[in-house]
Amino acid sequence: MQGDLTLCGWRVRSALALPDLLPWLGGDSPVDIDISFGAIPTPAEPPLYTLPHSTLWADGRFLLHLEQVGKFWVEKGRRIVLEPAEHADESELRTFLLGSVLGVLCHQRGLLPIHASAVRINGRAILIAGNSGVGKSTLAAALGARGHALVADDITAFDTPTAMLLPAFPMRKLSLDVLDRLALPHQGLIANRPGQPKFHVPAADGFAPAPLPPSAIYILHTDRLLKSCAIDRAAPAMAMALLDRMIYRRAVGMKIQPPPALFLGLSKLARIAPVYRLRRAEDPSLHRLDALAEQVEAHAAVTRPLLAGSGTE
């Protein structure tokens, strides 16, 4: 069995191989998250909330079920039980474990998970938030190619009490066209799901392993009417509305955490880091990717956090 691993700064002991996670170097502290294979618990009482793939019971006990992949039980923010489907391969288990399950884990642990990639620029982290397919990981990778370390890809956890963003794990999900555009090799990469054009790309050499204060939040949109890209500050009320839509696993999260706790996190985040709408032209050929990264880099270099972000109210 592999040694203990690091995820969002937690000590993880996993029966499932997780080659994308860094080893645990934090000394003798107790294990935070235990991942095992086994039979999924079956609560006697009815669930509180049911979605096609998700079931939630009292105390935030959560089950993710995908017929072709398996069942993922997540409990108390510390215990995960996996029951793989017959023909599932390990990489598919990892896709959901480091995706939806991580999101639920954050909610159970009282963190605010944002649907965003985070990149370190000048000692702070910018968030690139947005809906799936809008280009968060792509922009983060283009910034990576310009020397800016990855903090988190796709899911970024904000710790409200300390007002810090937690480094997730050194892996990006990138599609073939982006790998080619950034001249990254795709030999030996594992697909997100078998046959999908999206791959798990190790990023260990460009990863920021320590928590960072947020400096700016960019909500990424594509806009077919634009010729290049535009960055506009969102007024406070709009900033909250935009950010609210970016809560990762929002529907389930609102049932696990008291909604006021989530909104407190959002408002604290938005009070520290200005929220910008980052609208870019559709760019299927990725010809404008470098220019976009350059523009965001230049913007992030001069943007100032609104508060010091030391955790004080």
């Binding site: 979605l51 096609p52 793939h53 998700s54 995908l66 017929e67 072709q68 896709t95 959901f96 995706g99 939806s100 809906n131 799936s132 397919g133 999900k173 997100n192 799901r193 078998p194 046959g195 999908q196 999206k198 696993r249 929002r250 529907a251 389930v252």
Partner: peptide, 30 residues
């Protein structure tokens, strides 16, 4: 895609095309 994800609270990118198609009637129900 955004509506599918919002309603089902799942990452569509993590699903196969077949899984997405299977889930779409549930999306309309919700």
């Amino acid at each position: 895609r955004d509506e599918f994800e919002r309603l089902l609270d799942i990452e569509s990118n993590d699903l196969t095309d077949e899984e997405i198609t299977r889930a779409r009637p549930r999306m309309y129900e919700l």
